[in-house]
Amino acid sequence: MNIIVFALLALLAITAVAIARLRELWAAIMFTGIYSFLSASWMMILDAPDVAFTEAAVGAGISTVLMLSTMALTGQGEDIPRKSSWMPILIVVVTGATLVYGTLDMPALGAPDAPVQLYPSPSYVERSVEDMHGLPNVVTALLASYRGYDTLGETTVVLTAGIAVLLILRRDPKEASATEPSAGDEPA
């Protein structure tokens, strides 16, 4: 099991670095899909099959499709190389170091006495047997009932995004003709 985990983690790291270095957008998008699949696999090992399914479907599926179609619409295949500046590296290193510093007091991976596992007591698993009248999947119970309100919020986010995309991309003929002159100076 450990070997699989190490291999997965190594692959994840390689993929992430590859995405950072790749100039060609098409390849970067493909690697993003792979990255999502690898994350989904690790989530599976970490006992979160529901999240793994969703990540595989949404992260590797829908978002890849969205990005590819955007690329097709914009037709820009390459990230133009430029002199790299030190600022982003500096910010990232500082942020990363802060986070690593923060891990030093964390409970170890899988520790049964971590606060997350001890609280609330009785745990959701124990409660849901009583409350949910035999619903086997506790994640579903949480999603639909205990924290159902977050799920309503999540649905609202999707609604917002849907309306927003309509709002951004819809163009009526009047407006298109009005903005034509200002767009006239764009190079072919």
């Binding site: 999240v51 969703t54 949404v58 997350v116 745990s123 949480l142 999603l143 999540e154």
Partner: peptide, 13 residues
């Protein structure tokens, strides 16, 4: 623990 899974399902969306 099922709670992180639930939170992340929301976050993914």
């Amino acid at each position: 623990n099922p709670l992180p899974s639930v939170l992340m399902l929301t976050a993914i969306v």
